[in-house]
Design a binder for these strands. Structure first.
Length: 153
DNA sequence: GCCAACGTTGGC
DNA sequence: GCCAACGTTGGC
């Protein structure tokens, strides 16, 4: 199966590229949207993802991560004291999943949403067409182009 | 902080 | 299964 490409959003005040670089590997917890979860379920070890900073100024792609473990149950959903608790998810019938990703690269600059929207090459991107979705597929051409932009400095 | 877009829930 | 009410995301 060919490698697939993704975009994963995080608010940097919650989890940033700095945190990702420091941790090396992290579990991508807290996804509570079925489309996003299904996208994580489609991820394979070795897939690469753009790490996107949302709800910040400016929003945009900050770097790269790689999937090192495919989808498995998000146990935080079972813990009533955890902010990601969901009473409808149980160890017997887990509703939410997470994947593990590792830090690959921090871009010397943020590739902003503004410039992505301004470039016709990205007109078909899920990020542009749909916006709100915390884990989304990215075409190889889109991925490669954003990586090139990010490395330009 | 506002609010548009979209997802989820639940009554019927 | 419809759809109104409500909640969340996330740009601005």
């Amino acid at each position: 199966m060919a490698k697939q490409f993704w975009l994963m959003k995080s608010e940097p005040s919650v989890y940033s590229i700095d945190d990702m670089e420091r941790d090396g590997v992290t579990s991508w917890e807290g996804v509570r949207n079925y489309s996003a979860r299904n996208n994580m379920r489609a991820m394979k070890v070795g897939d690469e993802a753009l790490l996107y900073h949302s709800a910040t100024n400016p929003p945009g792609v900050a770097g790269l991560v790689r999937v090192v473990k495919g989808a498995y149950p998000d146990h935080h959903a079972f813990d009533p004291n955890h902010q990601y608790f969901d009473p409808k998810s149980s160890p017997e019938e887990p509703r939410w999943d997470m994947v593990d990703v590792e830090f690959v690269e921090r871009f010397p600059r943020i590739v902003t949403l503004h410039e992505i929207k301004a470039n016709p090459a990205f007109d078909d991107m899920v990020l542009v067409k749909r916006g709100r979705l915390s884990v989304q597929p990215v075409r190889r051409e889109e991925f490669d182009r954003i990586v090139r932009m990010g490395r330009e400095g």
